[in-house]
Computed example of a mutant assay.
Amino acid sequence: MVRIPKSHPRYWSLLYREKIIESMEEGITAKAGLIAHGRGEAFDYLIGERTIEPAERAMKVAVAKLLLAEYPVISVNGNVAALVPRETVELAKAVNAKLEVNLFYRTEERVRKIAALLKEHGAGEVLGLNPTKKIPGLESERGKVDENGIWKADVVLVPLEDGDRTEALVRMGKFVITVDLNPLSRSARMAHVTIVDNIVRAYPRMIELAREMRDYDRKELEKIVKEYDNERTLSDVLRHIRDRLTRLAEEGIWRRERLVT
């Protein structure tokens, strides 16, 4: 990995880019994952590279639903494995969820490498190495799922997800949660709960919330989920972007915020 001086004003952004590149070279992330990461980074600039209130709201609902689930599963792709392997394992443990590797550009070698990486960070069982089921209506490799994982799940967390699989999982009757920096994507619009935030911020916060909320009684968790409106959340994200860009245009970028480069 290229050494990035911590004094660099874009240190964290460049560090995560390098992690994606390094993971691609190691055969964990697909080449297309670099494009996806760049697209997400662009939307992160628009929201201000911080966790905004609509994302915090969605995270609380997502954690509540995962804690209520009878059989929750967290899906893992190459970018997730590259950016938050330890946090993915910790989150799964915090909400008692299964982990399943699921890839659009699937090769058995990539699946094995991602599973091994998760185990290096403390995972026990990792599903997805030998999928025996196929999601109806989904022709891509992402349709292959484990009968003891996503196929059986009632709640599925699918971060950095393709819209077609999100839609297919919803059709199957799954409750779908996604982490997606693009509030306009099909995944964001099709999921029941959309966390518009960078996964490197979202997962650590979700782990904190899970530890805080695990002692909530069932009625309190159910109330949190029942009162949630995902369309309102996405609209609030768009309003945040609109208002922030309007403010920057009126007051000047250099006066209020360092220009993103």
Rank of each mutant, 00 (worst) to 15 (best):
N182M: 00
V176T: 05
K174P: 08
D162C: 05
V225Y: 09
I177K: 06
R205Y: 10
S140R: 12
N198Y: 09
S140Q: 05
R205P: 00
V176Q: 07
D215H: 10
N182H: 01
V156H: 06
G163P: 02
G149I: 06
D229Q: 01
R214I: 12
D164G: 11
V196I: 07
I224F: 02
D229N: 13
F175Q: 09
K152E: 15
I150K: 10
D180H: 04
Y228M: 00
V196T: 12
R189Y: 07
I199P: 01
R211A: 10
E167W: 13
P159Y: 04
L181G: 04
S185L: 06
D217S: 11
I177E: 03
L184I: 07
G163V: 12
D146S: 09
W151R: 11
L169C: 11
W151K: 13
E141L: 14
F175N: 08
L169I: 13
A202H: 06
D180M: 09
E220I: 11
R186K: 15
R214P: 10
I199S: 02
M206S: 02
R189C: 08
S140C: 09
D215F: 12
D146R: 00
V176E: 05
I177F: 03
L209K: 08
I224P: 08
V156T: 06
R142N: 13
V176A: 10
K226Q: 12
T178H: 09
E167C: 08
R211M: 11
E208Y: 10
T166N: 13
I177Q: 03
Y228A: 02
G163W: 04
E141I: 02
I177V: 13
G163H: 06
E212S: 12
R214S: 14
E222L: 07
K219V: 09
D180A: 08
G143D: 04
R171H: 13
P183F: 00
R189G: 04
I195L: 08
P183E: 07
V170M: 14
D164A: 15
R201Q: 12
V156R: 00
K144D: 14
S140W: 04
V193C: 04
L221F: 07
E208T: 12
E147W: 09
E212T: 09
M206I: 02
R201C: 05
N198C: 07
V225T: 05
G173E: 03
V179R: 03
E212A: 11
D164H: 14
W151Q: 13
E161K: 03
M206R: 02
R165D: 11
R211V: 04
D162T: 12
D154C: 07
R201D: 15
L157D: 01
G143Y: 02
M206N: 06
K223Y: 02
D164C: 06
V179K: 01
E222P: 08
K144S: 14
L184W: 13
T194K: 07
T166Q: 10
R218V: 15
V158F: 11
T194M: 07
K144R: 15
N198D: 15
D217A: 11
E141P: 02
P183C: 06
P159V: 00
L169Q: 07
P204H: 01
D162E: 15
L209H: 06
N198K: 10
I207C: 04
P159K: 01
L181T: 11
E227G: 11
I199E: 01
D197V: 12
E222T: 10
H192S: 05
E161Y: 10
T194E: 06
R205L: 12
D229C: 04
E212M: 11
M190H: 13
K174V: 09
